[in-house]
Design a protein around this nucleic acid. Structure first.
Lengths: 211, 211
DNA sequence: CGATGATGTAAGACCCGTTCACATGACCTG
DNA sequence: CAGGTCATGTGAACGGGTCTTACATCATCG
């Protein structure tokens, strides 16, 4: 039994190294942040030599970009679920989406870090650009439904609304939702802070819930 | 003249190494991002050995934190100047502050990166915490002046307003104001996007400019 | 069975962060 | 001015990381 360790790869070939590396990356990023994540350690954690990962990723950044890509896909899925076709009404669904964004940042810090804190440029790969655009598209679509509630004469551009909401949600998540500035003492939970911001903002657009 | 190079330090002691390292760090961060910045290269750029910086900073992170600290001081100064005692009126001054935030992110990418993208925890040093708090305090003070425009019966907490505005400004700066997601095609300049967001938001608070 | 291509390994070049013993020299003190 | 002291800088060395290159293994298919 001398060969038995945690995951004693006996076969020369791993069989599923690409996925194993991505999982290792996710675990490591979650534990030590995107900067602490190391190609070599991911390899070690998968039980292969330090050179093996280069058969599956051009370099460390490409792995990071792949993780970020999957993160955007998960985020899009989460937002889509929260929106759930705008039921029961667009405003309630919109609010759920905001919470879903913060929930994602909190529940998947590794994905979130890879997506936004890893220095990976958004155009690192076509897939990444596409995944990120797709996630935004979910929000944009919701914004369109919300804008449709307003009289056509005073209807703001849905794209602008989507950008505003994305920005404030991202700002809150970055500043207060996680490690970064999380130490700043908030008078409320990030979720409440975001909900209040969106409520005030929609009110400013003439979409008060009490009209 | 064999000893003449760029800045041929002839004296054994540099004389002002601390400042030289900080300047080198700023230049390098600006050129290659906070991740690309290297203690060794800063030392090289200052013309000293790789071990010399350790006489002035405990480690690389402490240098980064020092840069971030100066960044917050500069930001606070910029916001204070933009606010300029709330003249001619609080709303106009508030708008200037938002623009000043984005201007800072654009004009000082090295500082901005050290402050928000360098993985330096906000409590890395007491000075950093203090500088960051001071910058926020400027915004908070302005928010208080803006809230004072409203009837006391319908006055929102100034802290909340400050947090909302800081969040949306930071979100826009992070997502669209610089390298990160700057590639996303915006229908407007970040400054206009922020101004519109704040206008809608203040309107939602009952502070329409046309009342 | 034998060739071939995908996948993994070993070793090494090069860089970084960090430490340690030692060198230099600014400055103070007698 | 002599000598001591302390801050500051040097060189060498360690451990670890990225990435490349030459070689090993093995699944697959003619």
């Amino acid at each position: 039994m001398t060969w038995s360790k945690n995951h004693p790869r006996q076969r020369y070939h791993h069989g599923n190294l690409r996925e194993a590396l991505i999982n290792a990356a996710l675990k490591l990023i979650g534990e030590k942040g995107p900067a602490g994540f190391t190609f070599a350690e991911a390899a070690r954690s998968a039980g292969v030599s330090a050179a093996a990962p280069y058969r599956h990723f051009r370099d460390r950044d490409e792995l990071m970009a792949d993780v970020a890509c999957r993160g955007f896909e998960q985020l899009a899925e989460g937002l889509e679920t929260a929106w759930s076709a705008g039921a029961p009404d667009a405003l309630a669904a919109f609010d759920r989406m905001g919470r879903a964004y913060l929930a994602f940042a909190r529940a998947e810090p590794a994905y979130y870090a890879a997506m936004f804190e890893s220095q990976v440029p958004p155009d690192a790969s076509p897939e990444l650009t596409k995944a990120s655009d797709a996630a935004f598209e979910v929000l944009r679509h919701a914004a369109e439904a919300v804008c449709a509630l307003m009289p056509a004469t005073a209807r703001p551009p849905a794209l602008m609304v989507a950008l505003h909401v994305w920005s404030v949600a991202h700002g809150i998540a970055s500043l207060f939702g996680r490690g970064d500035m999380a130490r700043r003492k908030l008078p409320m939970e990030p979720e409440e802070l975001l909900e209040a911001a969106v409520l005030v903002y929609l009110q400013g657009l003439g979409l008060g819930p009490d009209r």
